[in-house]
Design a binder for these strands. Structure first.
Length: 196
DNA sequence: GTACAGATTGAG
DNA sequence: TCAATCTGTACT
């Protein structure tokens, strides 16, 4: 297996967000292995980005892991019920991260599942955390070192022409300028991306 | 201590 | 279109 190394996460965040497309998240939950191909991501580049939790250089108990060197898990609860999986990026001191918005289930899936159900089991940031069995206990986990979650490159290359850049979702509170930035990326034509 | 809004989701 | 649901964050 080829686990992504620290270096991968230290590159510019927008670049990392695009390069993550097509990579596999591997999660070990006890004896079970859950795998999903990343098909949709979103970039957050604090402190200038008004939509980022680290806007204005804010440091809180929730977002502090964003300030560490890239390659860690930033996970938090929104709306009181959904976990959001992010990978931290950039070097230490730069609060930047990539939100994982949708996965294409890969490998063996627990229980019986139809092709139709498969399309909708991880097509949203809250749903994919459920699929991967993630919660607060993964906060700060190091993707370069962890035994329970990491990201693999299986050689699949997504060409630039296959990547669609679009507006980010659910961040209108940041004002039109930031809400309009096309910092959401997904694989063109993938039926597994989150609904619009 | 209290108020309040949110990087979503699925039902109506 | 809208409520569910609860923690982090700001402010008294």
């Amino acid at each position: 297996m080829t686990r992504l190394k620290r270096e991968f996460y230290l590159k510019p965040t927008l670049e990392t967000a695009k390069k993550l497309l097509g990579k596999r998240i591997v999660r070990k939950d006890g004896k079970r292995k859950i795998v999903g191909k990343i098909v949709e991501t979103e970039a957050y580049i604090g402190p200038k980005d008004k939509a980022s939790h680290a806007r204005e250089g804010k440091i809180t108990k929730r977002n502090q892991v964003e300030y560490l060197a890239g390659g860690r898990i930033y996970i938090y609860l929104v709306y009181g019920m959904y976990w959001q999986l992010n990978f931290t990026t950039a070097s230490e001191g730069k609060p930047e991260c990539v939100l994982i918005r949708a996965l294409e289930p890969a490998g063996k899936i627990a229980g019986k599942i139809t092709e139709k159900e498969k399309l909708k089991i991880a097509n949203g940031p809250g749903k994919l955390c459920d699929y991967l069995k993630l919660n607060k206990s993964l906060y700060g986990e190091d993707l370069c070192d962890s035994k329970i979650i990491w990201v693999e490159d299986r050689g699949e290359k997504i060409k630039n022409e296959e990547i669609v850049a679009a507006k980010r979702i659910g961040i209108d509170y940041a004002g039109p300028y930031w809400a309009k930035r096309k910092w959401r990326f997904y694989i063109k034509g993938s039926p597994f991306v989150s609904k619009k």
